[in-house]
């Protein structure tokens, strides 16, 4: 805000020394006008006047801006991270389920971590169909035996959200007898593998373990 007053003072040789001290390290246009004044007095170049070297005032500007930016930047993270899952949300992560509730050829839908979870008791024909297609051209190649626990081919435990946009596929529908997603027409086979439609991946298998022959713990 004092630029106008100092600019006006420049042609006055008597003031040039004062201007020089006051102007050192200002913006390029300030330095330009300063150099004119300096030439007029015939004085030797001020060591701080060089346009390339950051002098003390530049250093203070850079340091102050860097400190402020660093403070704001590091404080921004708490404001972003508060949106991530909170500790209690992360804590309620596992459930147990009694498999005797699922008749052969049926599935039960549980709620796990806010999402549906399919527990399917497959028939021999459904298992055979899934194994037969292990060698078919698959979008997300996986063998049926890798999608259930060893020796437990009848039990399929899957996260029941379509890998396209998260709708809940309907049981037994579609061209492959597994699941069909009503939202955008994805077809899954009896192993939960994507066979047709827009979904990019197979229905996900969560982490789970058999606690006994009839009980599983998911998560």
């Amino acid at each position: 805000m004092s630029g106008g007053a100092e600019g006006g003072a420049l042609p006055d040789v008597g003031c040039a020394r004062w201007v020089e001290a006051g102007q050192t390290g200002r913006r390029p246009q300030a330095k330009g006008s300063f150099q004119v004044a300096d030439t007029a007095t015939g004085a030797t170049a001020d060591p701080h006047a060089s346009g390339d070297d950051p002098n003390r005032r530049d250093f203070i500007h850079i340091a102050a801006i860097a400190a402020a930016a660093g403070a704001v930047g590091s404080l921004a993270w708490p404001f972003i991270d508060q949106m991530n899952p909170s500790a209690d949300t992360l804590a309620m992560a596992s459930i147990e389920f009694d498999l005797t509730k699922v008749a052969e050829g049926q599935q039960v839908v549980l709620k796990w971590r806010g999402k549906p979870l399919f527990v399917r008791n497959r028939t021999a024909a459904e298992i055979a169909a899934a194994v037969k297609d292990d060698g078919a051209a698959l979008r997300d190649p996986a063998k049926d035996e890798d999608r259930h626990k060893p020796g437990k081919a009848q039990w399929l435990v899957l996260i029941g959200t379509c890998t396209h946009l998260g709708c809940v596929p309907t049981f037994g529908g579609g061209d492959y007898g597994g699941w069909f997603c009503p939202c955008h027409g994805s077809h899954y086979d009896t192993s939960g593998r994507i066979r047709k439609g827009p979904a990019p991946k197979n229905l996900a298998v969560p982490d789970y373990d058999f606690l006994s022959d009839t009980k599983v713990k998911i998560g």
């Binding site: 972003i80 949106m83 991530n84 899952p85 909170s86 949300t89 971590r113 806010g114 959200t161």
Partner: peptide, 17 residues
């Protein structure tokens, strides 16, 4: 998506924000 949801699915934290 996890950041938007504030959990593993669309749930109470999502509704609040």
């Amino acid at each position: 998506t996890t950041l938007l949801w504030g959990g593993f699915a669309v749930d109470n934290p999502t509704l609040n924000r």
